[in-house]
Design a protein around this nucleic acid. Structure first.
Lengths: 335, 335
DNA sequence: ATGAAAGCGCTAACAT
DNA sequence: ATGTTAGCGCTTTCAT
């Protein structure tokens, strides 16, 4: 259809400089050649606008400069923020992001990961992933991989940014308990797809420990997914005194439902989120939530990957400790 | 570092089937060969798990299955939604998104576009772009490109999804005017980078037409960018009676500022957004804004690109008409 | 209908 | 220090 571009090739640069292609290749990477040649070739490349073709280089086995970024669901606002932050860090390192959204289907994550590897990404960053499976081992074995969130047990990743979910959950339930809540609904997007997830396990365990009755309710990721569910949940006569949403996006849907039902937050029902999103503090009432430092997470993840790409074999690990931001959406239950 | 994967190659498949590589290549694409061979090769491919290497194919000049997606700024929540929607549509077509965030720097957009072309994306989808420049012509000439938002005048794009910004702006200003507002501050993220943008031009023109005094204020994209600015703007004695934000994200920052200043919306100041975001209706008061159907936009853009990739040379164009959602953040100015 | 051979642009052995 | 050669995995002439 339209005319393909006519990029300068290494052979043209070779002809231009009077060298061979390989000499040029070496010169551009500053190996095997004299400093003088390096300089001369660099300048020549500049002149004719030569830049190595990433695809050809990739075919040969080299790096592409692309990093695969796998997200559990972009419908979740916090994940959107994470993608933004990670992409920003990647760009600072001269890398591109090949983003793949599993859209809530854990099964799709592996499939996407494989595709990304097929596309020769130099590395992989995977955030909220479904339950660990053997197949991740093969992936992580073929390309450096960094996880964000829950770690993939038994998988030889290059690094992991682990969320201390337990302490986040503990703090949240403790907060509600202190306020006097004894019956709490917990809305989780992972219940059906990844039942053994740390967060849900922690909820059950800690609730039992402090003598709190929790109802775990599976819930779609997004604002629109949680609204109808919350309508049901809160319309019933014996509604819980508090709702703990394992994602702020879910909490937004609950706000919506409360407004429709004429329920006041926190007078009639307390609402808590998770993974504090910038908007949460703007809501009325401002949403109590648990914050992870997204920028720090993104920086660590890309840093780990960068180190692995640079040949550093040491597995790195960072545990991110959350901050409970008790705001106006939680209070003692009404009588 | 870790062992590279050992994908089946076309030669292996050739050996396996007793055919030549070229015959296999043809068979897989169902050309030049007997139906029987096609079937046999397909089955064999299945058996040994062969799939064409996208990188090798790309080097040869074929398609990569990757689409470049250029966003003006991912700091903007609406853009995040757009990316999500577009990626979803792309995935439905079996395509991957190589996402590039210009992060508010229009100059970076072209640079990113070039890089994406270097990476052999099959096509390009570019949303909020800076001012049109000649260089876009070269890009759009080398790879099918679809724009979202303002069209790139004079650039041979494969398609454009054009926002009828004028009518959005007109409706918004009209709405404020009807309520009785005569002095309105307009917060725009494009003022410095792309002064001639349709939206800003429309604001000036229509404000003059209806006898409204507007102050155009340049403003960073995000919530955090607009807050300090709004603090200044609204603290002054002769503050405008309404603030029109050319992005909901900006409006969120204004909400924040109002809360800090103890200003009531809309009693003390009316606030309007643009590009309705799902959260806007949840705010208190709910934010008056102008909605574009994101899903429709994404569908059209990927559809246009898909058609172009399929060889359809006809340039396509869709004009998206906005809906003004008058909500609770706008009212008659107080006395 | 199928095979042989060339080549996309690059890099890494192996000369020299 | 530089040149020659041989591929990476695929598609496409050009033969047969």
């Amino acid at each position: 259809m339209t005319g393909r571009r006519k990029r300068a090739t290494i052979r043209e640069l070779a002809a231009y400089t009077g060298l061979s292609a390989s000499a040029v290749s070496y010169a551009l990477r500053g190996i095997h050649v004299s400093a003088e040649t390096v300089e001369r070739v660099r300048r020549a490349a500049e002149e004719i606008g030569y830049e190595a073709d990433p695809i050809a280089r990739a075919l040969r086995g080299g790096a592409t400069g692309m990093v695969g970024l796998i997200v559990g669901s972009l419908a979740d606002f916090w994940n959107q923020e994470l993608v933004r932050a990670v992409m920003r860090e990647l760009r600072a390192r001269g890398l591109h992001a090949l983003v793949a959204d599993a859209d809530g289907e854990p099964g799709r994550e592996l499939e996407l990961a494989r595709r990304l590897v097929d596309h020769r990404v130099d590395g992989l960053i995977a955030s909220p992933v479904g339950p660990p499976g053997d197949d991740w081992g093969a992936i992580a074995g073929s390309v450096p991989m960094v996880t964000i969130g829950d770690a993939l047990a038994g998988v030889p990743t290059a690094g992991e940014v682990v969320f201390d979910t337990d302490s986040g959950v503990t703090a949240t339930l403790g907060h509600l308990h202190t306020l006097g809540h004894r019956r709490v609904a917990v809305l989780s997007w992972a219940l059906e797809t990844s039942p053994g997830r740390r967060a849900e396990v922690a909820v059950r365990r800690h609730a039992e420990a402090i003598g709190m009755e929790v109802m775990l309710v599976p819930c779609a990721y997004s604002l629109n997914g949680s609204r109808p569910l919350a309508l049901d949940l809160l319309a019933s006569a014996d509604r819980p005194s508090a709702v703990f949403c394992l994602s702020d996006s879910i909490a937004y849907g609950v706000y919506h439902a409360c407004a429709e039902l004429g329920l006041a937050i926190p007078a009639d029902v307390s609402v808590v989120g998770f993974d504090d999103h910038p908007i949460s503090r703007l809501l009325q009432p401002s949403l109590t939530s648990t914050a992870w430092d997204v920028e720090a997470v993104a920086r660590a993840a890309t840093g780990f990957l960068g180190d692995a790409l640079a040949g550093n074999a040491a597995r790195q690990r960072m545990v991110v400790v959350p901050t409970l931001l008790a705001r106006a959406s939680t209070a003692a239950p009404g009588v």
